[in-house]
Design a protein around this nucleic acid. Structure first.
Length: 582
RNA sequence: GGUCCGGUAGUGUAGCGGUUAGCAUAUCUGCCUGUCACGCAGAAGGUCGCGGGUUCAAAUCCCGUCCGGACCGCCA
C-alpha cells in the first residue's frame, strides 16, 4: 500500500509535501483550464486540482463519479480567494504528479457524495454497499465501532471476562418465537437460535467466572419495527455476589463512559429512578420519554358519581395538560388513543376560569380544581383517558408521545437516561387465564414480597428487575436472578409449573442451580437501539450494516429464499404446500 | 392477524378523467479562466408496480393483488 495518509489528515502543515492518496471520485468539476476532482475516502474529502498542462490532465478527463483512484501529488495551500470552509480540508488542495484509475464504476443508483440522501430506504438497502459509502453511514458505523471499543475497554478494566456462547442451542425461556435450524445429524430435531444468552450467562456465574460480558447476537422471530430486527446485538453482562444496587451503579458508570468516549457528552449521575407503577401512572409507559414532563394528573375523584357516565364509573380518570389544539389535532390524537386501546379521548379547552368544548357541559364546580391540579394554561387543552387504570394510562401515554412529536417537545438533541425499577414479578395472562412471569422465570422477587407467592396478592410482588431507558427507548433490561431453590420452587408454582414440568423444560439448568450457585444478576443492552438513539437516527437500520426490512427480508442478498429439494432432503425437511386454515 | 400512508424516467417528485405525462437531480455531449451542491446550452431516458373493471376516453375512479413504510397485536 502506497497511501501516506487519509485525506482528512491533510492540512496547511502539509503544504509542500508529496502525499499519496487512495479513494473514490466524489465529484468532478471541469473548467476550461483545469479539473477539480473531489477525492473521498472514509475520513472525508479533499480537492485535487489538475491544470491543463498537468500530465494527469487526460486521466482526469476520464474520471467519473465513484471511480476508484490513486493519486500522488503536492499539497498546496490555497489562495485566500480560493479557500472554502465548507469542509475541513478546504484550505488546501493537492496538485497531482501521478493519477491512476484503479477501477471504473457503474453510475450509482443514487448520489453517495454526501449531499442529503433522497432515495427511499428500500433502494438504499438494495444497494447497501453504495449506501454504506455515504459519509452519514460511515459515521454511524464508526460511531458503533467506537462504542464497542469503549465498552470493551471499560468492562475489561472492571475485570469482566468475555465469553462466547453458542448460536446453535435450545430454546430459552423468554417469550419470543424461536428461529429453528434443522439438524442433519439428528433428523427430525432442531436447534433454536438464541433469543438471548440468558441461561448460558447464568451458567457462567455458576461456573465461577464472576463477571462476564459478550456482544451477543440474538434472534427473535417476531414482527419487525423501526427499532426491532429479527437478529440484533445485545451487550450482555452478568455479575456474581452482587445486589441490584451494585449492578445499577456499575451500569451508570459504563453508560456514562460510553457517552463520554463516543459523543463527548457527560451524563449526569446517578440516573433518576422511577418505579414501574410511577412510570405507568405518570407517563403511561414503562419506558417513558422524560426529555419533557407532561405528567398525568389523577382526577378520578372529581368525576366519581357525576353526570358524565364514562368518567363517573371509571376506576381511573387521568388527565394531561396540552397546548392549544385545533379540532383536527384533537381528532388525530383521539385516533392515537383509540389505536392504543381507549374508547375515546375526552377534552376540554380552558377559557378564562372555565372550560369550553369537548365535555365542558359536564364540568361545573370542578373547573377551578382541574385548573389548579393540571396547571393548564389559558387557551390550553386538557386531554382525558378513563377506564381501567392500565388501559387509561397506556392510551394517554401514546397521546403524550404524539403530542411530543406534534410540538417538538423533546427537540434539541438532549439525552435523558433513567431507570425503571420494581416491575411486577408476575402478570396475569388474560388469554390463557393464568399467571405468568413478566421478565423470565429466574428473576428474583423482592425479599420483602416473597410471602405473597400463592396468595391473592401475588400480582403485587415486586421483581428485582430494572430497565434502562433512554429518550423513551428501552435500551437495557435485567434483573437479580433467583439462586435459592426454595424461591425458585415458589416461582414455578406461581406460574403453574409442577416440579416435574419445570424439570422437563429446564432440567439441566435446575441441576446446575443446585450445584453451588452464587447470588448473581445482570443486564443486557439493546446495543443497536442504543446506537440508534446516540446517532440521532429514526430507525435501528441506520446503525446496522446489513439490516432486514419490515418483512424480515434482506433486499440486497434477497434472503430469505427457497432452497432446492436436495438441500431439504439432506436436513430431513419437507415443505408443506401452504394451506389456508379457515 | 389488524389499522393507516405510499408505489409515475437511474433517483426524488408534480399531475388525480381528455397533457406530446411536467419539474429537479443524476447520466451523455458541447460551451464556460478557480469551482467547491460551479454555471450555461442541448440530448437521451417512462409497459405511470401488476391484473381486472367502470368510461367514448384511465397515471387519474373502483376492485383485487404484489411491493415499501409507520403503528397495534406480537416481541417481557
Amino acid at each position: 500500500m502506497k497511501r501516506t495518509c487519509y485525506v482528512a489528515e491533510l492540512g496547511p502543515a502539509h503544504a509542500g509535501q508529496t502525499v499519496t492518496l487512495q479513494g473514490w471520485v466524489n465529484r468532478v468539476r471541469d473548467f476550461p483550464e483545469q479539473y477539480f476532482v473531489i477525492l473521498r475516502d472514509r475520513s472525508g474529502i479533499v480537492q485535487l486540482t489538475i491544470e491543463s498542462d498537468n500530465p494527469a490532465y487526460s486521466v482526469a478527463s476520464e474520471l467519473r463519479g465513484e471511480f476508484v483512484i490513486e493519486v500522488t501529488g503536492l499539497v498546496r495551500e490555497r489562495g485566500e480567494a480560493q479557500r472554502t470552509g465548507a469542509y475541513p480540508t478546504g484550505g488546501i488542495e493537492v496538485i497531482p504528479t501521478a493519477l491512476k484509475i484503479l477501477n471504473a464504476a457503474t453510475t450509482p443508483a443514487f448520489q453517495v457524495d454526501g449531499t442529503p440522501i433522497t432515495a427511499a430506504e428500500d433502494i438504499r438497502l438494495k444497494f447497501r454497499y453504495l449506501d454504506l459509502r455515504r459519509p452519514e453511514m460511515q459515521r454511524n458505523l464508526m460511531l458503533r465501532s467506537k462504542a464497542v471499543a469503549s465498552v470493551t475497554r471499560f468492562l475489561d478494566a472492571e475485570g469482566f471476562i468475555q465469553v462466547e456462547t453458542p448460536m446453535l442451542t435450545k430454546s430459552t425461556p423468554e417469550g419470543a418465537r424461536d428461529f429453528l435450524v434443522p439438524s442433519r445429524l439428528n433428523p427430525g430435531e432442531f436447534y433454536a437460535l438464541p433469543q438471548s444468552p440468558q441461561l448460558f450467562k447464568q451458567l457462567l456465574m455458576i461456573a465461577g467466572f464472576d463477571r462476564y460480558y459478550q456482544l451477543a447476537r440474538c434472534f427473535r422471530d417476531e414482527d419487525l419495527r423501526a427499532d426491532r430486527q429479527p437478529d440484533f446485538t445485545q451487550l450482555d453482562m452478568e455479575l456474581s455476589f452482587v445486589e441490584q444496587e451494585d449492578v445499577l451503579e456499575l451500569q451508570e458508570r459504563l453508560l456514562a463512559s460510553v457517552f463520554r468516549d463516543v459523543l463527548d457528552v457527560e451524563l449526569p449521575l446517578p440516573f433518576p429512578r422511577l418505579s414501574y407503577f410511577e412510570a405507568m401512572d405518570k407517563y403511561g409507559s414503562d419506558k417513558p420519554d422524560l426529555r419533557f414532563e407532561s405528567a398525568f394528573v389523577d382526577v378520578t375523584d372529581l368525576f366519581a358519581g357525576g353526570a358524565f357516565q364514562a368518567f363517573a364509573t371509571a376506576t381511573s380518570v387521568k388527565v394531561m395538560a396540552a397546548p392549544e389544539l385545533t379540532r383536527k389535532q384533537i381528532d388525530e390524537l383521539e385516533r392515537v388513543a383509540k389505536q392504543n386501546g381507549a374508547k375515546g379521548l375526552a377534552w376540554l379547552k380552558r377559557d378564562g376560569d372555565g372550560f369550553t368544548g369537548g365535555i365542558s357541559k359536564f364540568v361545573g364546580d370542578q373547573a377551578a380544581e382541574l385548573i389548579s391540579r393540571t396547571g393548564v394554561a389559558a387557551g390550553g387543552t386538557l386531554l382525558f383517558a378513563a377506564g381501567e387504570w392500565q388501559k387509561a394510562v397506556t392510551a394517554l401515554g401514546a397521546v403524550r408521545l404524539a403530542l411530543r412529536d406534534l410540538f417538538g417537545l423533546a427537540a434539541g438533541g438532549q439525552f435523558h437516561v433513567s431507570w425503571v425499577t420494581e416491575f411486577p414479578q408476575l402478570e396475569y395472562d388474560e388469554d390463557n387465564a393464568r399467571w405468568t412471569y413478566m421478565h423470565h422465570p429466574f428473576t428474583a422477587p423482592h425479599p420483602d414480597d416473597i410471602h405473597l407467592f400463592g396468595t391473592e396478592r401475588q400480582g403485587e410482588i415486586r421483581a428485582q428487575a430494572y430497565d434502562l431507558v433512554l429518550n423513551g427507548f428501552e435500551i437495557g433490561g435485567g434483573s437479580i436472578r433467583i439462586h435459592d431453590p426454595a424461591v425458585q420452587e415458589k416461582m414455578f408454582a406461581a406460574i403453574g409449573f409442577t416440579p416435574e414440568a419445570a424439570h422437563a423444560q429446564f432440567g439441566f439448568f435446575l441441576d446446575a442451580l443446585a450445584a453451588g450457585t452464587p447470588p448473581h444478576g445482570g443486564i443486557a443492552w439493546g446495543f443497536d437501539r442504543l446506537l440508534m438513539v446516540m446517532a440521532g437516527a429514526q430507525s435501528i437500520r441506520e446503525v446496522i450494516a446489513f439490516p432486514k426490512n419490515n418483512r424480515g427480508a434482506d433486499l440486497m442478498a434477497l434472503a430469505p429464499a427457497a432452497v432446492d429439494a436436495g438441500q431439504l432432503a439432506e436436513v430431513g425437511v419437507q415443505v408443506a404446500t401452504r394451506v389456508e386454515l379457515e
